[in-house]
Every structure is written in C-alpha cells, then in structure tokens.
C-alpha cells in the first residue's frame, strides 16, 4: 500500500484561550509520511519565527529527498539508519539557522523551539524530538507516551526527586532542558518503532498534555477513532474548555494498512505499474 493510502493525517493548531498569538507550528504530509510539530519560545513574536523556521526548513529539505532515498536501509559504514542521518543533519542545519537568526537580529534574541517529528517508512516510524513536545501511540486500547520530555521536571522524576503524581502540581512545568536554536549545537533524540495497522500516533505541544490528562486523551481517541478529524477538533476543544492556557497543537496519524517498502526488483516493478 502506498503511504498516501496507508496513512491518514489530521493537523490542528489553536492559540488557546489566553494567548493572543500562536507560537506553535505544525506540518503534515501523508503522501511522504512526514509530520512535524514545533512549540516556539522567547521574544515578543520570535517564538513563532523559531517554530515556523523549524517546520518549514525541515519539511522543505526532506520532502524532495524522501522519494529518492531509502530511509529504512542501514548505512554500512556507520551502522546508522539512513533516516537518522538525514534527521540529524537536518536538525543541525535548522538549529544553525535559528541560532544565527537569533544572534544577528536583536528582536529574535533568545528565541528557540521544541521539536517532535515522525517519519513513516517501511512499516516503521522514526521519532525524533527535542524538548517537551510529545508523541503518544494508541495501539490495541493501550495509550502510551513514546517520547520522554527533555525538561527539568522529567529529570526530577527520573532522579526520584519527585513522583509523576507530584509532578502534576509542580510549578516548574515550563522549563525545558533542550531546545532547537538556543545553542550552536543540539542533540536530537531519535528512536524507531514498528508500526502496525490500526495504530494512531499523536504529536502534541504541551498546551494539550498540560491541560488534558493522558488517560483522557487516550479515551477520546478510542471513542472517536472512526472520525479522526473530529478527534482532533475534540482534543483542542478539551484543552480550551479546561482553560486553554497555552497554544494547543495536535497532529494525529492513523495507520490504515501495511506500507512495507518494496524490496525485490519485481516488487519495485509491480509498485511502479501500480502507481
């Protein structure tokens, strides 16, 4: 099955109930299997500049390449998956662009952005993230967070200083330990996961998961999975009904079927005839 048929993508973003402008940026392309979400920060309007640069630069660079490379293959020299190499290079370039803009233009000083992106290929997904924007997966009624925030709070939880339950009451929610564009270099965390038909992936900014409990996000998806558009609208609405204190962005990706990459020459030929 081609990616365009195998994936259904719904993208939603909303300024929320308190903020006057939206510093989140979102991008989704089912045909190429690429979704990107960024939550900008800093400056008067610079947060949205940083997040907008992140989604635009990464998608513009990667999209034309996707057709020509085999992201699933492993580079013999480095033992690294080709997709990872492209993500790392692309993140470094984007980090550099944002950092330079922040350095050279006083109105952009201190801007930065979180990033979470998912790249689907060959029944796999490469998930890359920086900061506290998240990716969750709904599979067989199990709703699970796959990314781990790069935040002060998560580090406190990891070191046992604070429990996940206590963390809900923390006043330090808004502090991330990694972001794109604030330092000359940044490390992106990348993991690969198998993808099964029926999976639903959720990428979101903290405007959703701070306002709506994980369990409730999972339940909403389960109930409304027949209508992904509605599920997206509903999640935004729930965040806003609970106060909508931050910008809210959600990208939903439903896997309709198998999208294994054709491997043999005749399969490639077959795929070519089909297309």
């Amino acid at each position: 099955m081609k990616l365009a048929e195998a994936l259904e993508v719904v993208v939603r973003t909303d300024p929320g109930m308190v903020r006057s402008h939206n510093e989140d940026a979102v991008f989704g392309d089912a045909e190429r299997g690429l979704v990107i979400l960024a939550d900008g920060m800093g400056g008067y309007n610079a947060g949205e500049v940083a997040s907008g640069m992140a989604t635009t630069l990464i998608s513009n660079d990667l999209l034309p390449l996707i057709e020509t490379i085999r992201p699933q293959s492993i580079d013999a020299a480095t033992g690294q998956r080709v997709a990872h190499k492209y993500i790392i290079d692309e993140v470094a370039l984007t980090n550099d662009s944002i950092y330079r803009a922040a350095q050279s233009q006083p109105q952009y000083a201190g801007m930065g952005t979180t990033l979470v992106m998912a790249w689907f290929f060959d029944n796999l997904v490469s998930v890359a993230h920086i900061g506290d924007s998240r990716l969750y997966r709904l599979r067989d009624n199990e709703f699970q967070q796959l990314t781990r925030d790069h935040s002060l709070l998560q580090e406190q939880i990891d070191s046992g200083m604070i429990t996940a339950e206590e963390a809900k009451y923390s006043q330090n929610k808004n502090l991330v330990t990694r972001a794109l564009g604030v330092d000359p270099e940044v490390e992106v965390e990348i993991h690969d996961y198998d993808v099964l038909p029926g999976d639903i992936y959720v990428l979101c900014s903290d405007g959703l998961n701070d306002m709506v409990e994980d369990a409730e996000i999972g339940e909403t998806l389960q109930m409304l999975q027949a209508n992904l558009e509605l599920a997206g609208d509903q999640l935004i609405q729930m965040a806003n009904d609970n106060g909508g204190r931050d910008n809210v962005s959600v990208i939903l990706v439903r896997v309709r079927g198998d999208f294994a990459a054709p491997s043999g020459w005749w399969q490639k030929l077959l795929a070519w005839f089909k297309s």
């Binding site: 800093g42 008067y44 506290d132 808004n174 502090l175 991330v176």
Partner: peptide
C-alpha cells in the same frame, strides 16, 4: 504566563522571553 523556557545546566538563568 507559563511560557516555555529553556533552562541551562550549571544554574544559568533560564532564558527570558525578551532577554
């Protein structure tokens, strides 16, 4: 209000919006 900010290791001050 609740803006996301980057915090740096070593106790540097979090980057303030508008810094």
């Amino acid at each position: 209000f609740e803006k996301t900010m980057i915090i740096r290791p070593g106790g540097a001050k979090p980057v303030q919006p508008g810094d």
